[in-house]
Design a protein around this nucleic acid. Structure first.
Lengths: 126, 126
DNA sequence: CTTTCATATGAATATCTGTTCATATGATAT
DNA sequence: ATATCATATGAACAGATATTCATATGAAAG
């Protein structure tokens, strides 16, 4: 059967030992890859959703705007923990907020957040 | 202006100190929350997408099925690193594979993966 | 059946990340 | 002004995780 060690022509002397590489396919795929920076940002975005606390916060905000204390009570977390995570969500523009006296009300920044979570939900509910 | 310390009726003596809580809203939102297990699974799903290496692998598989060596070459990673991440993707059913002799070809498991990544992309490209 | 190739796995390490504790800020009453 | 309330922030610690190194598996070729 066809092996792969024939393709050892112009292999770069990288840290990689000699690999099984189908050059034509690799070249085609390389051309179609988005720039590294985009893929990095994409991973960073998903990383934010990839935490139980933050997902719960976001999901709670699906229903209604909430203040920090509401969220803490709702999810059984400390005020500090919630505040820290809200900061992450805020910095990454996934939530917005308005102030009313001492109280700060948070809500979802836009509909992208909803759509991303819903798309994930479809995969989980199977 | 309206504060929040009036709502100190039946506060559970939890680890939380006394919080600003709007009970009515919290009750409504609590009722609408999916079970914890679902939200945990959802976070776990996004966590998988939340890594540059894995996102790159998945994106590469958008175009074509690839063997381990192809992916390593394409992304400038070691065979071992790729293999470890493919294992994660395989266990979580985001990729499938077929064997041809010693070579193992990986591909996307289903269209959910595409849709989730594309949805994230829309948010990043702004 | 021994060697080589392609991939997989295990242990160790270093980095990253989330929570807690203590404290700071900023706003509103008294 | 001062006390209290709601939230924010900083440092420290613990747990999770991705890469590397060394080695194992499993398939084909000689």
């Amino acid at each position: 059967m066809k092996g792969c060690a024939d393709n050892l022509k112009d292999q770069e002397p990288s840290k990689n030992e000699y690999l099984c590489v189908h050059e034509d396919v690799v070249d085609k795929v390389t051309a179609a890859m988005p720039p590294d920076e985009i893929l990095y940002d994409l991973a960073e975005l998903f990383k934010i959703f990839g935490d139980t606390t933050r997902i719960k916060i976001l999901y709670a905000l699906f229903e209604s705007e909430l203040c920090v204390g509401d969220i803490a009570q709702l999810l059984g977390l400390t005020q500090t923990a919630v505040s820290h995570q809200l900061r992450v969500l805020k910095v990454n523009k996934l939530v917005k907020f308005r102030k009313e006296g001492k109280i700060v009300f948070y809500s979802l920044a836009d509909d992208h957040v909803r759509r991303i979570i819903n798309q994930g939900m479809e995969h989980v509910e199977e």
